[in-house]
Simulated assay, not measured.
Amino acid sequence: MTTGFTVIRDTTPDAAIPRGAVVAMGNFDGVHLGHRAVIAAALQMGRAHGKPAFAVTFEPHPRSFFSPNSPQFRLSDEASKLRLLAGTGLDGAVVMTFDKGRAGTSAQDFIHHDLIQRLGISGIAVGYDFHFGKGRVGSPSLLVSEAPRLGIEVDVQAHVDIAERPVSSSAIRMALAEGQIDDATEMLGGPWFVTGEVIHGEKRGRDLGYPTANIRLDKTCGLKHGIYAVRVGRGAERFDAVASYGRRPTFDNGAPLLEVFLFDFKGDLYGCKLDVAFIGFIRDELKFDSIDTLIRQMNEDSARARAVLAAAPDAFPKLGEIG
């Protein structure tokens, strides 16, 4: 794991910001292969000049600010995004608060005040379609045109394609919404994961012989309801598991809940924070006419999940520690 990953925020004193760093700038939702190309360019630039490399990102996601009544399914919340960024080898991240003031800052002011004066960057890498500043008039071409005068290096990364399809956060959201876990994993460069605290449920799983760790996901989560082969992380520990995400139509058709059954595990997980990585889709969520039928299906689901996980022994997101 990466250690010493530094997070710089708007409240960080200027004196605590390393001067001359190279930055990769973007929203980085999911930290997918397209994002990783930008990050790799910043890392290479930093190594070439002996400078640290940081990500520059924005919280909340600008789309949440501009469309507060239309919340978007985020692939990674702020904490998860930072852990993913820390796992790339970056030295840290600059998290800029996206509020009314920042939304109203012109692209030129953002470059000169935020990037040059405050951060003192020596280079920047961005994706071909990244825009910034009031009215989104800031662009990669603007950075390139300003670079000679500012004395910085600019690297613009083209889109990353898989099977002639551009990798994007929206494409990954769509894949997850359709249960296409393999496609999402390929575009992300590793399994999609969620993190949550285990809460008390109705204890039905225990009565069925499948005691589950229950996690309430964000209400905007767009993952397809169904049964999944998953791998669970508790700190450095890893467990194979089968999980259900949905409304439990056989019982109450309630609010969506992630219910995870860890194979060959005994212990109390209540209150624990778990990482759950989605490795494979098993089937759609179904309503069963009897408990016996449900249990038989759960047995089949578990066997299929074990087989999927056996074929993916190293599948887990590469996460770093936040310093």
Rank of each mutant, 00 (worst) to 15 (best):
P317E: 10
E186L: 15
N27A: 09
H159R: 14
I295V: 15
I152V: 07
R296F: 06
T2G: 06
P148I: 02
L82I: 15
I172E: 06
R47N: 09
L85R: 04
I282E: 01
S122V: 01
H200W: 10
R283E: 00
R231Y: 03
A55C: 10
H159T: 13
P13Y: 00
Y245M: 04
E259F: 02
G46E: 05
R19D: 15
V126R: 03
V194S: 02
S67R: 08
E146T: 06
F65V: 00
V23R: 15
I121A: 03
Y245T: 10
V308I: 07
I172D: 05
G92F: 04
D77M: 11
D207Y: 13
G104T: 05
G138Y: 00
S168G: 06
Q108H: 08
A147L: 03
T212H: 06
I162G: 06
A310S: 03
D301F: 00
Q44L: 04
D155T: 03
L119P: 04
A184G: 08
H113G: 05
I17W: 02
L294D: 04
H32K: 14
A55Y: 15
F278L: 08
D77S: 14
G151Q: 07
A303D: 05
R9P: 01
D29H: 11
D218G: 07
I8N: 09
I181M: 06
A107H: 14
A315H: 09
P191F: 06
G233D: 00
T185I: 04
A315T: 05
S244K: 00
A175V: 04
S67I: 11
G196D: 10
G104L: 04
R216P: 13
R136S: 09
S76D: 13
M298Q: 12
W192K: 04
S70P: 00
S76C: 11
P191Q: 12
L176Q: 06
L257S: 07
E78Q: 15
S106R: 07
L217K: 14
G201S: 05
I8W: 02
L33N: 15
D91F: 09
E202D: 15
P313F: 03
P211E: 08
R36I: 12
P313R: 11
R234C: 09
G267V: 03
A48D: 14
